[in-house]
Design a protein around this nucleic acid. Sequence first.
DNA 1: AATAAATTGTGTTATATTTACACAATTTGA
DNA 2: TCAAATTGTGTAAATATAACACAATTTATT
Lengths: 232, 232
Amino acid sequence: MNKYPHSTRILVALDCIVFGFDGEELKLLLIKRNFEPEKGKWSLMGGFLEAEEDLEVAANRILYDLTGLKDIYFEEIKTFGKIGRDPVERTISICFFALINIHDHNQDQAKAQNAHWLNLKNRPSLIFDHNQMVDMALEQLRYKAALHPIGFELLPEKFTIPQLQKLYEAIYDTPLDRRNFSRKILSTKLLIDTGEKNQNSTTKKAILYQLDKEKYQSQFNAFHNFMSDAMI
Amino acid sequence: MNKYPHSTRILVALDCIVFGFDGEELKLLLIKRNFEPEKGKWSLMGGFLEAEEDLEVAANRILYDLTGLKDIYFEEIKTFGKIGRDPVERTISICFFALINIHDHNQDQAKAQNAHWLNLKNRPSLIFDHNQMVDMALEQLRYKAALHPIGFELLPEKFTIPQLQKLYEAIYDTPLDRRNFSRKILSTKLLIDTGEKNQNSTTKKAILYQLDKEKYQSQFNAFHNFMSDAMI
DNA sequence: AATAAATTGTGTTATATTTACACAATTTGA
DNA sequence: TCAAATTGTGTAAATATAACACAATTTATT
């Protein structure tokens, strides 16, 4: 079966950065490792690509094992392939990030993996090159969310504009003008007024919106200007 | 040395889309294969990741073998990993694109690889999933060039604004307004007037500019608006 | 029942950017 | 000398962005 006889076969891993949002802060779903190597330390969720498994299928498998969710939004960041990045054995790792609604995932499945939601801002140091992976994932998230409507993936189905604004403020770690933000979002016509209002409020109840999924699909690749240049 | 005993090791390839520009059209440097598999057909330049080789080093090696150039601009697109994408043996391929000045590369080295510059527009069909790789590379090039000053990588050191415009028109396959394009480019302050003029012209000789490399480095991640929304 | 505090929705104006154009200058060949 | 092609620069209208103000809603407090 080895038909390219002179080439070396190498372990291929996948590592996944799972972002969540609790209404105030960006969160990461991280693994407290109860297995070797680096038992006891924090790491990303990962796994090896299997012999007869499509790469995309493997990514979905790993996300499913962690969250119990299917059809999660995810995108590849890059492949990490430095010699020695995994001290156990030469391994390259295809790194990707996923966005989920923090309340949607299966708690038992996360517990089985010993996974915990930690604040992105004061996350612990991670094993191997996982810190660098998280840095690149955040950079990529900022880049993408400034131009494309992916923030919604982190929110519940129905959400208010102030909630969306808080999300963007968390992603870019910067305050935004309420009135300009609202106008910019509404001008995309991507939001549908559900007619309902957010009942979890002790002051004026904000309008609950829903994503217009058809427009979302068709406009996804168009450029929006959600952030001017605050990001990098 | 196999310390993750239960996992499968897999062949890891790299495949590279090399873009060039002849002043009129976007070009690809493609291989007319004189080796198996798929001998006689067209493909991208590629190679296998070696056992003790950094991924980045491998990409540079493959580009050097093809062009004789070092420090080429390149960026990763994504990793292709479907079962059966290489009919010989399970192989994943890390796909990236590179931008070079079409007149800079070593002709002998290209000839040794049986490489030829072909027009992007009417390129032949390629082996395996290489057609899909080219499609994604073009998409990525359009995306990136709309926001970041990477087009210069395809031009000679000294170039005119009309030449730069022709490049952008080739990338996006669309005509652009001469006056607005010029203003937009000059407003970035990335160009330095060399004081020279393009002598290869039968009418008014255009000013030759040079990239301001310091500003290029520092502004690289800033958003420019080279293209409004014509792209996708 | 009236009021204060917090939050949400909408509007306005000044400034900057983008778009759609027009005209003058340069260069070569007829 | 003039026509044809190309390059450089300018201008006005439309659009988008940024900075700001005010009115409405809701609950808790007096």
